[in-house]
Design a protein around this nucleic acid. Structure first.
Lengths: 344, 344
DNA sequence: TGTTAGCACTCGTTAATCAAGAGTGCTAAT
DNA sequence: ATTAGCACTCTTGATTAACGAGTGCTAACA
């Protein structure tokens, strides 16, 4: 167990290093006026802290820098909630007060504000559409051979796909198909849709429509949409401000990672609904090896869920980031849920 | 007017500098076996070319580098079409041969392949939806107070928006509205839609529906969608490979520019349908001050149009880029138009 | 026994110096 | 008109030296 004095020193090291990005030396620590012991004592303690793995030197005679273990300890034991400034509260309100009509707009704006306030990069994962339920099928013919198939969900989400119609498919056939689909599939979640189509609905279609088979293939395509929610980025270029990203290769690795949707999604951990901090290699992801990712989930209504992530250097202001993320999370949940209840 | 010898020298300077990113010296030029005169002669000619503004020195005793004027002259007078390798042709075919069903997928894939082949960044601007014509209106009620309004165009494009319904709006009202809208607006282009609604349709609605006014406001929102086509990027991080982008600030400026949709769109020049090259400051855009942008338009069917841009350093392989862009442009036009004619 | 002052030592950073190499411009010879 | 020769310029990379920040250790101190 760490002594009280060691805790104090570790805290100063993390705080100072977070603020300055410079290794922290014993003299610098001793200057804090609530630190009552001398640099020499601090050096001894730091030596111990280093042995315990909480801090490291960048070279033999440098000041100390928190290790991953040090950050981990810090966020687990030393982190206290921060307060927000007037200005910050105002900015949050600006998105959570009514006037933004569209849900998507609120989410987009949230990502921007959160990245502005933290100076880190933020990613919002929109609600997964898998749980949405089919409200209505619609097929709108375009030409003799083509039509647009549309699925509207109970949440107001719309999926659409252009499909080809079989030779000789006439309006009454379309009518029939629409009726069958709406009869059979209303209320089915998008996740179940594919299975339900294959196991039940296609058979019914075959019974009623001569040319069902070639049509079924088209329908398959519309049931196979992206399952994951949409990604919204804020402050993609914020990382350029961080001194640790003055290295071209790091910037590059990060940018490339952000271009790959699947990799970005793997940063989220939706199993866990609380606020979750992954430090450096805890992310199991080379490109974010010296980055920390803080995630949280927000909810819309009772069964839609999305996630928020703040990505910053491991030398990140965890206190501030966690506070802002938490406010954003609850604000978003409240605002978007309200929109749903108001029926928007 | 430039002498033949000067033309030869300018060509070598551009070609060599494009290939190596190093200033080109007189000795290096004289080594080309089709160059028959000595380094000293070349030095004299270079001195003249410099005076004329086609090339510049990076410092007093360095080799020469093409100036913007030099590049301009090069692309205007010295550029010849290049041939493509087997591999390149194959890659193009892989996207233009059938199997990619969705137009959007073809476009997305095109951006990627073009950026892979050029090693530059490419941007595809999807067709502007303004010319699409309304095929069908649809309103799907979600709750008592909300519904999804959907517009399907003759091209299969779908716009949708969640709207609020007035108190006491019943299914027969919705039916009536749908009929009125479809009667009045079928065939109207999306560009005209807003005006048409305001000037004619709203009045008709008011005559038939008691609570039309509060409903009209909702309809306004759906008619006000993005007018510009969607942007698809390829190889956003390719610029990291270019030696001129080893400078953090340049990378940063470029990345930030690409995050701003309006700035990206301003790089296109859709007035002109040919292939268009803007070199460095010709772009009138600080962030791309030492970049060149090559644009072209492709067409889908008879009145949809989109644009393609290749963005690279001014020291860019114009010959190759122009060739690839041209092939891509015609291939895309052909492929997407075919999809339209096939009714897809 | 825990704390602290003092000091030698290490290492990174910066600036200064130097040599090598590439390229030019000019002059004089062809 | 062309070219060989040469002095001069400027960049690049390596080497060196001075400086400063910080440590670890020892010995003195409370």
């Amino acid at each position: 167990m760490l002594t009280n004095r060691q805790l104090q020193i570790l805290q100063v090291i993390v705080d100072d290093f977070v603020a300055s990005a410079q290794p922290v030396g014993s003299r610098q620590i001793s200057k804090k006026d609530w630190i009552t012991f001398s640099p020499a004592t601090i050096r001894n303690e730091m030596s111990d802290l280093e042995e315990l793995g909480f801090i490291e030197k960048t070279h033999t005679s440098s000041g100390r820098v928190p290790s991953e273990k040090g950050y981990r300890f810090y966020v687990d034991h030393l982190l206290q909630p921060a307060s927000m400034s007037e200005r910050e509260i105002g900015l949050f309100q600006s998105i959570f007060q009514n006037h933004l009509a569209e849900k998507e707009q609120v989410i987009r704006e949230s990502a921007n504000i959160l990245s502005d306030l933290t100076t880190y990069t933020t990613i919002l994962l929109g609600p997964n559409v898998g749980k949405h339920r089919v409200k209505r099928f619609q097929i709108v013919p375009l030409t003799d051979q083509t039509a647009v198939a549309i699925i509207v969900t109970d949440t107001g989400h719309v999926e659409n796909r252009t499909i080809t119609l079989p030779q000789g498919f006439n309006p009454s056939d379309i009518e029939k198909v629409i009726n069958i689909l709406n009869d059979r599939l209303a209320g089915v979640s998008l996740l179940e849709l594919q299975r339900k189509l294959e196991l039940e609905t296609f058979n019914v279609l075959r019974q009623h429509i001569k040319t069902a088979d070639s049509f079924i293939q088209s329908l398959r395509t519309i049931a196979s949409f992206e399952n994951e929610g949409k990604l919204y980025f804020g402050g993609k270029t914020n990382m350029f401000n961080q001194p640790e990203f003055h290295d071209l290769n790091k910037v590059r690795a990060l940018m490339e990672m952000m271009e790959r949707e699947s990799q970005v999604i793997s940063l989220f951990h939706p199993e866990d609904t609380g606020i979750h901090i992954r430090i450096g290699s805890e992310n199991n992801h080379l490109a974010v090896d010296d980055l920390s990712v803080i995630t949280a989930t927000y909810s819309i209504g009772k069964d839609q869920e999305g996630s928020i992530a703040i990505i910053g250097p491991t030398r990140m202001d965890y206190q501030r980031a966690v506070t802002l993320l938490d406010v954003m999370r609850s604000g978003l949940s409240r605002t978007l849920s309200k929109k749903v209840n108001d029926g928007l």
